[in-house]
Design a protein around this nucleic acid. Sequence first.
DNA 1: ATTCGTTATATCTTATGAGATATAACGATC
DNA 2: GATCGTTATATCTCATAAGATATAACGAAT
Lengths: 121, 121
Amino acid sequence: MEKAIKDILVNGALKVNGSLWVEGNGKRFFGPGPVELLELIQETGSINQAAKRMKMSYKKAWELINNLNNMAGVPLVVTSTGGDNGGGSAISEEARQLIAYHRDLRVRFSKFLEEETQRLK
Amino acid sequence: MEKAIKDILVNGALKVNGSLWVEGNGKRFFGPGPVELLELIQETGSINQAAKRMKMSYKKAWELINNLNNMAGVPLVVTSTGGDNGGGSAISEEARQLIAYHRDLRVRFSKFLEEETQRLK
DNA sequence: ATTCGTTATATCTTATGAGATATAACGATC
DNA sequence: GATCGTTATATCTCATAAGATATAACGAAT
C-alpha cells in the first residue's frame, strides 16, 4: 500500500489551506482583507476608526478603499469630509452585496479545504 | 431582482481565483512554487539548472529546498557535491508522491474555482 | 471665526526581502 | 594535483514596501 502524504512529514498536524479572491480582469480585486475593513466601516461609520480596529494604518486603509472604488464601477465606500462630526464614511448597497457574496464563498471554500484535508489522511 | 456581482464592476472579465498549499502545523509547507522546482530538478538533475529554468536565483531555490527538507521527515531532494559532473541533485520517491498529490489537488481546485466563477454571473 | 474629527495627500524614514557577488568545499576523472 | 560544475554559504547592495509624521481641506455647530 502507498504511504499517505501525512506519513511523509514529521509533524502530524497537516492540513490543506488556501486563500481566495475575486479578480477583475487579471488584477486582484476583492480578498479577505477588504471584507473585514468594509464591515468595520459599516459598523463605525469611519475609515479612521475601522482602520484602528484592524490595527491598520489610515494610509493603508485609505489606499485599499481607493483601489476598491477605482476598480468597481460603483463606489463601495462613500465618504464625506467636514460636517458636525468631522465627516465620515459609509458603505454602499453594492458593498453589502459583495460582503454577503464573499461570506457565502468562504463557507463553500472551507468545506472544500476540509474535504481536501481529509484526503491527506 | 438582485444585481449579479459582475454588474457591480466596470470590467466584465471577473473570476474567482486563489491559491492552495499544504500546511505542516500552521506553517506553509508545500505550495505551487516548490512543485515546479521539484519537477525541474527531477528533469535536469541539478538545482542550479532547475533554478535557471525558472529564472529564480540559486540562493532562493536552495533556501526553498532547504526549508522543504527541514520540514519533511524524509529528504525530498537529495544532493551530492563533487564527482564527475561536479555533483547534482535528485528528488526522492516521497517528493514524487507529493508532486502527484498536488497535481490532483490542483485539478480539483480548478474545478472549484470554475464553479465559483460561474456563480458570479 | 474657532473648534472639531474626519478625509485626503505628500514626504520622509525605516524595515524587509530580493538579488548580486564572491568564495569555499566537494570528489570523480584525467 | 589540476580541472570541472555543482552544492553550500556568507555578505553586500539595492529596490520595494511599510510605517511614521505632518498638514491641508472640509463643513456643521457654536
